[in-house]
Design a protein around this nucleic acid. Sequence first.
DNA 1: CCATGTGAAAACTTTCACAGCG
DNA 2: CGCTGTGAAAGTTTTCACATGG
Lengths: 226, 226
Amino acid sequence: MTERIPPATVSRMAMYLRCLRDLEEQEKTIVSSRELALLLGVTPEQVRQDFLIVGCTGKCGAGYDVVRLKHRIECFFGRDADHWTCCMVGMGDLGRALISSEMVQDWGFRYVAAFDTDPHRIGTRFHGIPIYALSQLKAVVQREQIGIGVITVCASLAHRAAGLLRAAGIRGILNFAPEALKTSEQTPIVLVDFSREFLKLAFYIQSAESRSREEQAQIQAVSAGE
Amino acid sequence: MTERIPPATVSRMAMYLRCLRDLEEQEKTIVSSRELALLLGVTPEQVRQDFLIVGCTGKCGAGYDVVRLKHRIECFFGRDADHWTCCMVGMGDLGRALISSEMVQDWGFRYVAAFDTDPHRIGTRFHGIPIYALSQLKAVVQREQIGIGVITVCASLAHRAAGLLRAAGIRGILNFAPEALKTSEQTPIVLVDFSREFLKLAFYIQSAESRSREEQAQIQAVSAGE
DNA sequence: CCATGTGAAAACTTTCACAGCG
DNA sequence: CGCTGTGAAAGTTTTCACATGG
């Protein structure tokens, strides 16, 4: 059942899901592969190919049923994707920003606990979420049946945090600390590295500008040739 | 010169750069493709293949010169990667967190201005960075020669923010708003979508657990066969 | 005529195997 | 002997072409 799905495909699936949500809000019931392709900047064929993975649900001539397709992709991400319990390890600026932004809450990811080393924060609540000491992590994770741990502590603490989460039997870790944590077969870790995104952007800027320079040079060459 | 570089390769380049920085701090001068491969979870051949792209700098038998290689990869990301000026559009929790975390400052990305709609914030400073009104964006971007705009406003404002940045002649945009902005050939946009990262993690958890279930089933089948 | 479904073709990435150098 | 460099092989992913159905 679990064919090898490449990371790029998983990313695209997440993008489809976002689009389908938006389409559902706009009360569209049918969408074609071409429309989705335009929205995502890929080819219609690729979209159809991807949908074969989740079990082709399209109808010839018409398009895809938005609700049905969305449901299939939600299944792709796990049937219980609608209620993941998360905890935040590190209640610094980033941790608080992630919680208060509520970006992922309505994607089925709900924070039920937070952990910090600062004694002033321990025992208080943030957006209704209780803040515990790190020493209580294992007990809380197991009591609340927390599935996902989100690490926003500094790089030097990240390994310790990951170790505690693993020891508590967490199912997966999202790591915002600029530190490559060893990911094991058992507990997957997704690293969100801001510096990588900045570098990627820098590269794309560079290549876009060099390309447009080339084009200008070509235009100049052409006009010179005339 | 600008061969088509796949996104995955760009990501790996950023990871190499991180590793090389760490190695440089540890005062290692030589590194082999195998060491880097282990650190990154890829194969040594892939590492060497990647380094061919930036211009093979390795010496047979010895390994790669850390400083030289790092320099080459920095060039891959643009020679002026060492001094990108950035501005933050949106000084909510996320915007402030990104600035105060200083995660990317020492990667050569420096914030020199911030923009917000809240009149209480306009005119003040945060971490020494002046906060302006959106109406001043164009003038400030051009005056300070800002290359990168970082969007952390809400989804509904993101399009307007992107439009203003583009009109001001920004070179690239990093978008943290949960909204797919149309990226043009001229000004690249990198979208950082937290919900996508959560979904990715959910998928990997799911597949890791189904795999281990399969293995257990296999083990049971084997022991049943004995 | 539009859109999907499907298998084959093309393009690409990754891996392999080995030559060459320190 | 270990490590790089390189081109060919294997294994992908993506694209194309066309059959099928509303």
